[in-house]
Design a protein around this nucleic acid. Sequence first.
DNA 1: ATTCGCAATGTCGACGTCGACATTTAGATT
DNA 2: AATCTAAATGTCGACGTCGACATTGCGAAT
Lengths: 349, 349
Amino acid sequence: MVSIKDVARVAGVSDKTVSRVVNREPNVTPDTIERVQLAIADLGYIPNLAARSIRSSRTNIIGIITDFISTTPYSGDIVRGVQDWAVAHGRTVLLANTGGDAEREGDVWRTFKAHRIDGVLYVAMYHRVVMPTAGEVKIPAVLVNSHPEDGLAYPSIEPDDYGGSYDLTRHLIALGHRRIGYIRLNPLLLGANQRLEAFLAAAKAGGLSDSDLIIRLGMEGPIGHETNYVYREALDVLSLPDRPTALVCGNDEMALQAYLAALSLGLRIPDDVTIVGFDDFRTVSLGLKPELTTVALPYYDLGWQGADMLDKLVQGKGSESERRVLNCAVVPRGSSADRSSILEHSNLG
Amino acid sequence: MVSIKDVARVAGVSDKTVSRVVNREPNVTPDTIERVQLAIADLGYIPNLAARSIRSSRTNIIGIITDFISTTPYSGDIVRGVQDWAVAHGRTVLLANTGGDAEREGDVWRTFKAHRIDGVLYVAMYHRVVMPTAGEVKIPAVLVNSHPEDGLAYPSIEPDDYGGSYDLTRHLIALGHRRIGYIRLNPLLLGANQRLEAFLAAAKAGGLSDSDLIIRLGMEGPIGHETNYVYREALDVLSLPDRPTALVCGNDEMALQAYLAALSLGLRIPDDVTIVGFDDFRTVSLGLKPELTTVALPYYDLGWQGADMLDKLVQGKGSESERRVLNCAVVPRGSSADRSSILEHSNLG
DNA sequence: ATTCGCAATGTCGACGTCGACATTTAGATT
DNA sequence: AATCTAAATGTCGACGTCGACATTGCGAAT
């Protein structure tokens, strides 16, 4: 492997001068720069970052620790956000996945420490409360899409499920809906309660009473092994004599089931019933016809801004207690079109 | 940062002896081992891998280069397969994403080289022909879920789209279907042609003639910006006077649209029409009711075995021209239940 | 008791880079 | 011409680890 000394020999200068050129330090003759760069190109020299990091004790590597990579597909956007930030700031990303196993997580922290990475983004694939098990290992870390368990001093960045759900409910009320069904997420998910509470609050603020709301549990049981009642509950709610004109689903996958239930009952969306979701999981939200009104989770920005927070922390400019919350925007689509535009959609099916 | 010398001082031995204990070299007294390990635990010493790699010129890091992380969500399983392999073999994973940009890809290769990683897994998120733009940089690499452009000497591992599609078609024929619709993937995808050709071959082998097959184009245009005809085509095919009893979709997302179309027409699945997909994209395949018969892509194994191929290559035991192809298994579910079990499903909706 | 053999442990230097400091060079100033 | 100044370049060593080699110690064999 060609080193700085090989370049120095070819260019006829000292290794230090090559180092100066590589690091763009001042006080090098243009002529020398040229000669060195020629030698670099000739030999295909690429600096050894490991050697550099030994001296500088900074690696410019940040690590991502995820729990379950593939359960909620679009949360991969968090990783993409981190990567784009890293590229923009000259960092590299180490990736590790715990599969939810605490022992393996301990190993991951230790491995990351062994690589002397600058910091860790601890990324939860669904919004929840977490307790990193870093053991004795101390690395600056930011929790992404999650919230530290009480007493843990980690900065965090998470989506505003409450706000998104509140706005979504207001959207429905503004469209004139006065009787609304709600199918709840697994209560174990942090978002579940926030979304439900915001729904109730917005309904109340909009003048609806409890008897106007039909609330069902769509899923329960341990994450990854839950029992799914969504299809059955959707069928049931939509078969009520005074069925709601709108059905809010805990997430987009539930909305998919609600669509299937509605269609099997011969109901048309949005003519007979409006259905909305949460997450903007695009395979579903754009795959459904009409397309699904939902709330977009800012996954990409969680990643990007999380990386930014981490960077500040590494440089000592951050705070251990910063809690950043990102807005979740309602994305209105065909499934909640109001009466004036219903005609366009009703001839689709 | 605590180094091997600190440990040596505390344990009252030389740094080399500590090194021996850390690396489990023979010829150290149990007593000494104990003392050293105590000191290690006391100080929280963790070896510096960068320093180690400077001496050994092996980093035990492998890099993953992906194109589009989030377009096809479950392909994240490839990454998971690689990670699990890495954990099992004491390697760490560097991750980079090109977004399909050749210039950025060049940077990625250079950065990886700067980290002196042992090898690269070049992962395509949808099965296709690729041409890595590594420039001058030489790192052992394996192409995953993709195929090298003519003349490029990279080993590769990819799914057997042809075989999967062939088996799927035979499955339908075995169930008695004699008139079958087919909605094609975007022809730009490598899998598109393989799947269609296998479908045609299996149909022919099963005694069906061209007039028994109704083939439509579901999507076209540049990847990521395609025009989608699936819903319209599905409606059309299912409205034909002699409509097919089975509809094969290029992938599961298309099958979703076909479901919606069938249901809007008042058709029942699988009673009136059988629908099948491809990919086993579980959010869709398990989210649909009845669940979708489809073909599972071996994403996880592509990752794991790809990493294994790379490892052999790094150790000089691999071949530049190895082409591994992994089986794609049919996953029979409710959407293609045969007549004897139709009753169970027909009372679902 | 002396020698031998091997286990146990230590010393030293190199890996590639760059900071601290030293030296050389060329032009400016007197 | 002698001196000064600052730019340009070089020397050296340290970062943390481990391979090559050297040394020490101790029981076995003679």
